[in-house]
Amino acid sequence: MSVITANLKTTLLGTELRNPTILAAGFLGVSAESLIRVYENGAGAVTTKSISIESRNGHANPTVLSFGHGLINAVGLSNPGIDNYIEEIKTVKEKKIPLILNTIGDRNEDFITVAKLGEAAGVDIIELNVSCPNVIHKKPYYSDPELLSSLVRNVKDAVSIPVIVKLSPNVTDIKEIAKAVEDAGADGISAINTVGPGMIINIETAKPVMAFKKGGLSGPAIKPVAIRCVYDIYETVDIPVIGIGGIMNGKATVEMIMAGASAVGIGSAIYYRGLDVFKKISEELSEWMDNNGYTSIKQLVGAAHES
C-alpha cells in the first residue's frame, strides 16, 4: 500500500475536504452509521440517499443489477421521508463529516421544505436531484431550463447554505442547462446522474429483468459520457463541478478533475473494489500526482482545457 503524500485537500463551496472523493447519492445512504462507515473508509464527503418530504417505497426487486460493464438501477428513490431522516443527518454531523443532502420533489415547494429541514439539521450542502421524472409538470426538471431556473431561485432564496444541482446527461445540450442553473444562482453543479434509462431482457424467459423494466446506467460504461459532460459544463460555467460517472480508480479521478471537476463522486466503484475504494483511490491519486509532479488538486482542475 502506498502512502498519501501529495496534498489531496480541496475546498468545495466553503467545506474543507480531506480528499476529493465523495460518496455519490443513492449508495449506502440509508443510515447514518452506513455513511459514517463510508467516511471511515476514506471518503472526503458523503451524500445522503435522495430524500423527499413523504416516505417512498420505491420499485419492486430486482432494483439493482450489474450487467458486466456497469450497474443498472431502478430503486425508485425509496427513502423514509425527511422527518424520519433528520436523526440520521444529525448523527453524521455529530462526527463533523462533510455531508451533502440530496433532495427530490415533485414541485419547488417540496425541495424547499426538505432543504430547509436539512439545513436546520446541519447539512453542509444541498444537492437538487432533478433527474427523476415527475408527474406534476409537463417536462421533468432536468430538461426544462426555465422550470429548473425557478427551482434553483426558490431554493436559493430559502436556504443560506450552498445549493448544487445534479444534472442529467440525457439532454440535447447540457451546456444550456448548466448555464441556466448558474444564472439562476446555483453555487455548483454535480454531473452526471445515471445514463439512459436502459433495459435488459432475459432471453430464456423473454422478460425484462428489472421489475421497473428500465433503469439508469452507472459505472465504467458511462465514464466517457461523464467526462464529456463535465468538460462541456466547465467550458460553460464558472461555478465548481462535482464529476460523477464511472470513476473507478486514481487515474480516472485525474481524468475527471482535468475535465473540470473540483471533486469526484464515487458510487458503482464500491461494487467493483469494495467499501474502502475511497482510500484506494486517494492513494492512487496521490501516487499519480507524486509521479507526475503535481502537488495540489487545484493544479489539475480543468487542465484538459485550452487556456
Binding site: 449508495f27 452509521e33 452506513s34 459514517i36 426487486n61 439493482v64 450489474s66 450497474l71 458503482s268
Partner: peptide, 17 residues
C-alpha cells in the same frame, strides 16, 4: 434486501451490510 452485493445500503444493521 435489494441489491444483494453491498451497494444499495437497504439491509444495513448499524454500519453492517
Amino acid at each position: 434486501m435489494k441489491c444483494g452485493f453491498g451497494v444499495c445500503g437497504q439491509c444495513i444493521i448499524n454500519g453492517f451490510r
